[in-house]
Amino acid sequence: MERRRGRDETEEERADRMWVELIQEVRVAQTGVQILFGFLLTVVFQQKYATLGATDKTIYIVTVVLGATATGALIGPVSLHRLVSGRRVKPQAVRWASRLTFVGLVLLLATMAASLLLILRVATNGGFVPWLVAVVVLWYVLCWFVLPLWTRRRYTSR
């Protein structure tokens, strides 16, 4: 007989629940990264792109690559589930999908920061742009990582 713990669920029941929760979370991030990546792909075809300086073009290329990698990481859990479905490895699949999602969120943060940097550089040419981007990145880090980790540490039952 399997040992039950926490929510009084088996390892397989827990994996099923965690999988459903993870996929719901990934849907939100996937939509955002796919829309952002789609817009990024169109920039190179705009007339203004030809007038960008070398630095801005480099920022754009880095941003597109970050967007592509974020998209891959955030879609990865779906492919992982499809390829291992029915193989009785759901607990392991949930762990790997969770890691992919975390990596995807970090890459999404980098993509958004680079996008914001490029847009603000083109729109303003202001020296304050890196500082403004840094403040926004700190906000994302606070909302996406610090607050959740603080909550986990403070309220996790031992």
Rank of each mutant, 00 (worst) to 15 (best):
G76W: 07
M18N: 12
M1Y: 01
I61A: 06
T124D: 02
T42C: 11
T101C: 12
S98C: 11
M1P: 01
V146P: 13
G38K: 01
Y49F: 14
T156C: 06
A93F: 15
V141Q: 03
V20H: 05
L117G: 06
A73R: 08
W96T: 01
F39K: 03
I23W: 05
L41F: 04
G53M: 05
D56P: 06
L22P: 05
D16Q: 13
F128W: 02
M112R: 05
L149M: 04
R27S: 11
A113L: 11
H81G: 00
T111W: 00
H81E: 10
D56I: 08
V133H: 07
G86R: 00
I75E: 11
L138M: 11
L83N: 13
Q92P: 00
C143F: 08
P148R: 00
L36D: 10
T58N: 04
T55L: 15
T101F: 15
F37L: 11
I61R: 04
A123C: 04
R121A: 06
T71C: 08
R153F: 15
L147N: 11
K90Q: 08
M1G: 03
R87C: 09
V78N: 14
E9N: 13
A110H: 07
V33S: 09
L22Q: 06
P91M: 00
A50Q: 10
R4I: 13
D16F: 10
V28W: 15
G86I: 00
E21S: 15
L107G: 00
V62G: 02
V103P: 01
A113M: 13
Q92V: 12
F102T: 12
A97D: 01
I23L: 10
L66E: 02
R158S: 12
G38S: 13
R3I: 07
W150M: 06
R154A: 15
V78G: 12
R87L: 12
T63R: 02
R158P: 15
V146A: 12
L117K: 07
L83C: 07
R121L: 09
G86S: 02
W144Q: 04
R158N: 09
G104I: 07
L138H: 09
L118C: 02
N125Y: 14
V135H: 02
A73P: 01
V62W: 06
T71I: 04
I75V: 14
V43P: 10
F145Q: 14
R154F: 04
R95Y: 15
Y140K: 08
T42F: 11
D56V: 06
V135D: 02
T156G: 11
R153Y: 15
D16I: 13
V94F: 02
R87Y: 09
E13S: 04
A114I: 01
G53K: 05
V65L: 10
V141N: 00
R14T: 14
Q30S: 03
T58F: 06
Y140D: 01
G67C: 09
L116R: 08
L117F: 04
T10A: 13
G76S: 09
Q46N: 13
A15R: 13
A97C: 06
Y155P: 10
W131E: 00
R7E: 11
T101L: 14
E12Y: 14
E13F: 10
T51I: 03
V122T: 14
L142K: 09
T31L: 13
A134Q: 12
V44D: 00
V43R: 05
P77D: 03
E21A: 15
L149N: 07
R152Q: 04
L74I: 09
V43F: 08
R99D: 02
V62S: 03
L80S: 02
V94I: 04
V94H: 02
V33Q: 10
F128S: 12
P77F: 00
